[in-house]
Amino acid sequence: MTNDAADAQRLEDEVGHPGQRWDDLLARVRGDAALQTFGAIAEEWLGLMWCLDRYRSAEVAPLGMGNPNASAANRLSGIYRYKGNWFATILAELLKNATGQEIRPRQEVQGFSQTHQIDIAWPAREDDPLVCAEAKVTGGPAYGSTRARGALSDWSNRRKELKFAATDLKLGRRKHDTQIDSWGFWRRSAPPATYILWGARLRPDDRIERVTRQVERVVGTYLDGGGIVAWRTSSDGAGYDAVPLPADAQSLSLDEALREIKTRINRQAAPGQPPPPPQA
């Protein structure tokens, strides 16, 4: 792991600075209410991910980012974890533009048995939100002696977390008064509506069908919806290309999920109008 500022500057000259790229992307979405779909900013997002991953692969920490008191390796590890928060934040901003409602990322929400930190929640309140979405970014490049991580690495644990959170949030609304006669009917009708919004970096031999299949299964049994955006290194090795979803999985596109969430929200509160109050 290098801590040489000259190496960081050379990499910045080549691919840019991830912090600046993020600031520019966020400012663009916040400054233009017409930006309401991920497709409208996908190119910039992929550029940001490529930039961040190049620093990760080179084991170089970007200049001026992270904890200055940490070692270079720990500083870079901390910076690399920003990508999940960036994904949740940009999706929340797109939904805010689309709905005219206040939507904040990383909202604490009270479930039946515990408090959950939800990546995207509407209304943005601890009790009785009506829509909750988990935003995940998975997969990463090789660096040092560490192999590249696939999009489905650690999926079994993530799937358990999604199932538990979705059920606990729905049970939290009526608590001990909850009555479940039919699991399928209850989990589809009980608020909050729950979603997974997934950004997946694929390795060269990863198949997008494996990702869509996992989302189909968890949506078919526990969640109310899901959306996927995937990318992999381009053939010339100079950036990331978006990976199209299979023809039979177009309903799982990230923008389709965002449109569904927008519809759910605006059917309950028009743009600029207050959301329904919490259930007493």
Rank of each mutant, 00 (worst) to 15 (best):
Q214M: 01
V243K: 01
D4Y: 07
V131A: 13
G172T: 02
P18E: 06
V211L: 09
A242N: 00
S113P: 08
G225R: 03
V60T: 03
G172Y: 15
S71P: 05
G111N: 12
I41S: 01
S234C: 06
L252P: 13
P191I: 05
V137S: 03
R174K: 10
N74M: 06
S57W: 10
Q110T: 15
L25D: 08
A70S: 13
F38D: 02
S189E: 04
L94S: 00
G47D: 13
I196K: 02
L95K: 00
I90D: 07
L223Y: 11
I196F: 14
E59V: 03
I208L: 07
A33K: 14
L197M: 03
V29T: 10
I228H: 06
P278E: 13
D24Y: 02
G199R: 06
D128C: 05
L46A: 11
F164T: 10
P129V: 14
D4F: 04
R213N: 09
A73T: 09
C132T: 11
K160F: 05
W183P: 07
R75N: 03
G111K: 07
E126M: 05
A27D: 10
G16K: 02
A58H: 03
E44A: 02
C132F: 01
G184K: 09
G140M: 03
R187V: 14
E126A: 09
A135W: 02
T178G: 06
A257L: 01
G225A: 08
D241Q: 01
L162T: 12
S77K: 15
G78I: 09
L197V: 03
G84Y: 15
A247I: 02
M1C: 04
T167G: 12
S113T: 15
V229I: 02
D224Q: 01
A70H: 01
E43M: 04
K83P: 03
G237S: 05
R147F: 15
A257K: 00
D13I: 01
R159Q: 09
Q179V: 15
N3A: 14
G16Y: 04
D255I: 00
T263V: 11
A270M: 08
T212Q: 09
H116P: 05
G150D: 12
